[in-house]
């Protein structure tokens, strides 16, 4: 039988109890503690303050802090649940939980919708999709003529925007994704299954006396 007695006074500010976080997510207590090892690495890469700044997030993602990227910014803003300009450990675990292979499909669909709804109007508009395509071309070697971008947008909106009002609402998005399940591939991180083997040092820093998996 697992028996959890949290030790006190070892947690930095903003660090939530792993037992509580495990109870709210698909992660076990050990996995939350292993995620804390990753969190500590990222959050101390520029300033060791127990919080992930946008710069630290970009550094972890691209191994290059100068690389501005629309999509990385968008992910950061969605992880920054409390809109504080930084990601604390609770935000980090709850947000990564959506990317867990066992997370509900509906959570993944909703997260992807928010990701692409750049101005948070509740709709993915054609102009937003165009902006994302242009951002993609800027970051990659790919070159597409403006007419080609418009053809891609036409094709996409004919398929996704069922009522043809020029924007994709949540239910249109759900239908579109169910017909194109590969779109959700980015929403699952198989790495999250092996987090305790990737960061085994969590065992030495464990805050619970006994760890049940």
């Amino acid at each position: 039988m697992g028996c959890f007695h949290s030790k006190v006074a070892r947690q930095p500010p903003g660090h939530e109890d792993p037992v509580v976080l495990a109870s709210q997510t698909a992660f076990s207590v050990s996995e939350v503690e292993a995620l804390y090892e990753l969190f500590k690495m990222i959050s101390s890469s520029v300033v060791d303050d127990g919080l992930i700044s946008k710069e630290e997030f970009q550094l972890a993602l691209f191994k290059n802090r100068k690389k501005e990227n629309l999509f990385a910014n968008r992910i950061f803003d969605l992880f920054d649940v409390k809109q504080k300009g930084v990601i604390d450990f609770g935000d980090f675990v709850r947000s990564l939980n959506v990317f867990h292979p066992n997370a509900p499909q509906e959570d993944k669909i909703n997260f992807a919708f928010k990701l692409y709804d750049l101005d948070s109007t509740g709709f993915i508009e054609r102009q937003e999709v165009k902006q994302m395509l242009i951002a993609l071309l800027c970051e990659s070697e790919m070159k597409l003529a403006d007419e080609t971008i418009e053809i891609i947008l036409d094709k996409t909106f004919i398929e996704a925007d069922v009522d043809q009002d020029g924007k994709i609402d949540k239910s249109e998005w759900q239908n579109f994704v169910s017909r194109n399940p590969s779109l959700l591939k980015i929403m699952t991180l198989p790495y999250l299954r092996d987090i305790t083997t990737t960061f085994p040092s969590f065992v030495f820093n464990s805050e619970v006396d006994e760890i049940a998996t």
């Binding site: 990753l38 690495m41 990222i42 972890a60 993602l61 691209f62 191994k63 990227n69 629309l70 999509f71 990385a72 910014n73 968008r74 992910i75 990317f99 990701l115 692409y116 999709v129 994302m132 395509l133 951002a135 993609l136 970051e139 990659s140 790919m142 597409l144 080609t148 053809i151 891609i152 947008l153 094709k155 996409t156 398929e159 996704a160 579109f176 194109n180 590969s182 779109l183 591939k185 980015i186 991180l189 790495y191 987090i195 990737t198």
Partner: peptide
């Protein structure tokens, strides 16, 4: 696959900024 045969979201999802697996690379 030629990009023009892909829909916009398939293309967008190839962005490096959406590939969170790199967070786990030490």
């Amino acid at each position: 696959v030629a990009p023009v045969t892909m829909n916009a979201f398939e293309l967008i999802s190839t962005s490096q900024g959406l590939n969170l697996s790199t967070l786990f690379e030490k």
